[in-house]
Design a protein around this nucleic acid. Structure first.
Length: 430
RNA sequence: GGGGGGUUACCGAAGCGGUCAAACGGGGCAGACUGUAAAUCUGCUGGCUAUGCCUUCGCAGGUUCGAAUCCUGCACCCCCCA
């Protein structure tokens, strides 16, 4: 199957500049494709995962991917899809963020693959040296304002302003598309890049680049967009109450990441499997059929979580996430050492006690629940235990007045206390 | 300025001298069920050194053996008349 028909089947094609010809054009010989990434944070999140995966697929099909980090454009702020003016980031913040993103991308793209090696570039490198006058003369000259005003990203902001709502748009944001358009021309010149891919909200910026290429250099560039990753209820994929789901283990632990995908709705899971994983069409169709027959099995979600966690956090991260899942959902805790427990429960509040309290029988489970913050008062702790909601190392506590002893240690110095289904605390005895 | 009504636990709302740590509903917590879903069902829901003790019904006093409940003053809110 050709790359493009695979992408189509996966639902990754929203629009192309050349529906009829682009498939053959891609089959003809290896091409160079680029996608941009916003350096608004030092880590990518699920929102930008799709871009990485699309580039990865292009590379697997023998094309050369270029990931552009918007060190320059990030200073301006892309108005596409935004209702209000963006806050500008400082140069230093951007530099740090760009470095962070590069590291993450290395897990998705192969930077050492001969002629189709991936490249990571920062558009600050070529935008920075421009002087304002030069830019206006060489680039700005090619942008008819009436065309710019017709772009959706601009029209919606101006329209809102007339109605008295929204904030309109600054000249700075208005200029954003010139910078991104010029990126495309630059990449064509220096890297032979002829195709820009992006989310569907990037269409206006992509076509601006194509127009600029034609005007400045008389070349034919191409564009392709993927649909925005949304859930069946219309909200964005990759958001939790706690904020975005990040790709860095520091911001979103492998366990949380794994859990996010395990919990994807039935209605959304097939789309995620197609768009985000590299499972074959046959495998995905088998999963779909299995899910329709017995949704409770949730094999689809499990595979999705597994594939993505492995891709983002490698085999080791997946193993930790799966072990943590097993434990967080009730498996009795045994045969683990301090280091493993500390890692699995890294996100859980922990409390240190002198070990003498264990040997002297000075620590009742009631006190432990209160001191570890799992109960607001001793009364509440008593109630929880009485109702069968307290667990030590995932084994239900039977006696209300019981004391903890060294017998209860799960490993050398650690004990795991739990209240209810999910509230955990780690007790460390030193 | 005059008259009336209100202020109860996380929220809403009963209670009108003892049986009130305070009905009921929501929320929250725990349990069962289940697909780590939705719905449903059950229990709990001020604190403690715990068959008892302490603190809570706008605030401060008072009456009474006994007050969330009665009286006085204060604060805030709502309505009606000027």
């Amino acid at each position: 199957m050709s790359l493009l028909s695979d992408l189509r089947w996966r639902g990754l094609i929203h629009q192309t500049t050349d529906d009829a010809g682009i498939e053959a054009w891609l089959e003809e010989r290896p091409r160079t494709v680029y996608a941009g990434f916003d350096p608004t944070a030092d880590s990518l999140h699920v929102g930008s995962l799709l871009g990485l995966i699309v580039l990865r697929r292009f590379q697997q099909a023998g094309h050369k991917p270029i990931a552009v980090v918007g060190g320059a454009t990030g200073m301006i702020g892309d108005p596409s899809g935004k209702s209000a003016e963006r806050n500008l980031l400082s140069k230093e913040d951007l530099q740090r963020n760009v470095a962070g993103l590069g590291e993450q991308m290395s897990h998705f793209l192969d930077f050492d693959a001969g002629s189709c090696s991936a490249e990571l570039v920062n558009n600050f490198d070529w935008v920075g040296p421009w002087s304002y006058l030069e830019f206006l003369r060489d680039v700005g000259k090619n942008f008819p304002v009436n065309v710019m005003l017709a772009k959706d990203s601009v029209k919606s902001r101006l329209g809102r302003n007339e109605g008295g709502e929204g904030e309109g748009m600054s000249y700075t944001e208005f200029s954003y598309m010139l910078l991104q358009a010029y990126d495309f021309v630059h990449l064509h010149e220096k890297h032979g890049c002829e195709l820009q891919a992006g989310g569907s909200d990037q269409w206006g910026n992509i076509t601006a680049g194509i127009d600029l290429g034609r005007r400045m250099r008389g070349v034919q560039l191409r564009g392709l967009t993927w649909p925005l990753l949304t859930k069946s209820d219309g909200t964005k994929m990759g958001k939790t109450e706690g904020g975005a789901v990040w790709l860095s283990a520091e911001r979103t632990s492998p366990y949380e990441f794994y859990q996010y995908w395990i919990n994807v709705d039935d209605a959304d899971v097939t789309g995620c499997l197609r768009m985000l994983t590299e499972l074959s069409r046959e495998e995905i169709e088998t999963l779909d059929a299995a899910r329709e027959a017995n949704a409770g099995q949730r094999e689809s979600q499990r595979r999705l979580a597994e594939e993505l966690t492995r891709l983002v956090h490698q085999e080791s991260g997946l193993a930790v996430a799966q072990k943590a899942t097993e434990i967080f959902f009730g498996a009795e805790i045994c045969d683990l050492d301090d280091a493993q427990l500390t890692q699995i429960f890294a996100d859980v509040p922990n409390k240190v006690f002198p070990s003498s309290r264990l040997t002297e029988g000075d620590l009742t489970i009631i006190d432990a629940l209160v001191e570890a913050g799992l109960a607001k008062s001793k009364g509440e702790a008593r109630r929880t235990i009485g109702q069968g909601g307290a667990y030590v190392n995932n084994r239900r506590v039977e006696g209300i007045g019981d004391c903890l002893t060294t017998e209860n240690l799960a490993s050398e110095t650690v004990m795991v206390l739990r209240s209810g289904k999910k509230k955990y605390a780690l007790l460390r005895f030193v």
